[in-house]
Amino acid sequence: MFNMVIILLATLNSEPVGTNDYRISRFILSNLKEIHQYNISQLAKACFVSNSSISRFCRKIGFRDFNELKHQFFQWTDIGREKFAYQGCREEALKDSYIDGIIENLQLLKKSIQAQELQQLARDILTFSKVAAFGSLHSQSVVLNLQTDLLTSGIVMDTRTRFQEQLEYIEEADSETLILLFSRGGSHLKRFLIHDLQLSQSNRPKIVMITANRGFRTNKYIDQFVYYDEQEGFTAYPYAFEAIKGILALEVYMQKNKNEKHLK
């Protein structure tokens, strides 16, 4: 269910205001608890579009038809209490307990992330002729920051915000491409990587996933996992990803400068 919301938010964020897909995604997100009660004609009328526009929208985001999409919302509940929970939360001291939680998670990151893995990843970024990175929501903002930081080292990194475009990019990439997947739990990528992705065995990109989910170890298309530990809850991210992004950008910059000095 949460994956469905991420897909809709990605559509909302990438579509021009006023387009059919923008109106449809915005209406569904605004009516998550009631959308399962709509039929296709009612939804089309509410969004001021045709039934065929609803059908195209459903196929565009990966569903056969509107009924399949609607089925995703039968179990929707208010996730606020779960989303904002974190260990040590104190209502009388939200500021202090929240910041303390962030610090504890950064301490876990410091102990668990392997410097050698980030150093090797930096070498790969400098070695591959094409580099791309993908995420969603919080992790996508980290990807955009990494894209900006790598420009300082002369690396032009590709990214895409929509899931379908991410999928197409990965499928069209060749062995000269390095792709980084930022995914705290890995769940939003499972649908594409396990069920939808079709890659050549002989000429495919190197794919590296950066994740806190140590149980997500098996996927024939992921070549390397970079793991870190965290305490589950609202204080977990995007701070860990931001720190990893910063270390990675620094490693690339330092290694590039070292290589250039060595050549002089």
Rank of each mutant, 00 (worst) to 15 (best):
F192A: 15
T218C: 11
R26T: 15
E34N: 15
H188I: 15
F73S: 09
E92A: 13
Q201L: 10
Q255N: 08
L29A: 06
S53Q: 06
E176K: 10
M1Y: 02
Y227E: 08
N203K: 15
N39Q: 10
Y98V: 11
K111N: 12
L197N: 02
L150T: 10
I207E: 00
Q87L: 13
L137Y: 07
Q164V: 05
L199V: 05
S136L: 03
A212P: 04
F182R: 07
E92P: 05
F225L: 08
D174H: 02
R90Y: 03
V5S: 03
F192E: 07
K220P: 01
K45C: 07
N213Q: 05
R81V: 14
S55R: 04
Q147N: 14
Y228M: 04
S41E: 09
Y227S: 08
F74R: 06
G233H: 00
L118K: 04
M157L: 14
K206A: 01
A133G: 13
E68K: 10
N67M: 05
F84M: 15
R56A: 10
A249S: 11
S55H: 11
N145W: 02
N219F: 02
M1G: 14
Q147V: 13
L69E: 04
I79N: 10
I102R: 00
R64K: 12
H138M: 15
A122T: 05
Q75K: 10
K261H: 11
D229P: 02
A243E: 05
S136C: 11
F74C: 02
F163S: 04
A44I: 04
A243V: 14
A173R: 00
I99H: 09
I102H: 02
R160M: 09
Q140D: 10
R217I: 13
C58F: 01
L106T: 10
I28E: 00
E232Y: 11
F73D: 05
T161K: 11
S153L: 05
Y22L: 02
G186A: 08
L8E: 05
K190D: 06
Q147R: 09
S141Q: 13
G80Y: 02
E251M: 09
F27S: 08
V142G: 01
E82S: 12
G88I: 01
F48H: 10
N31P: 03
F225Y: 15
Q201R: 04
T177K: 00
L43Q: 04
F74L: 12
I244G: 00
L189P: 00
Y227K: 09
H188S: 11
I61G: 05
I103Y: 08
R56E: 15
E171H: 00
M209H: 01
Q164E: 07
G215S: 07
I194K: 12
A132N: 07
L197H: 03
G80V: 02
E92G: 08
V156W: 07
K45F: 09
E68T: 15
A236I: 00
R123P: 02
Q255C: 11
R162T: 13
E91H: 11
V208G: 00
S112M: 03
M157P: 08
I125T: 13
Q147F: 08
D174K: 04
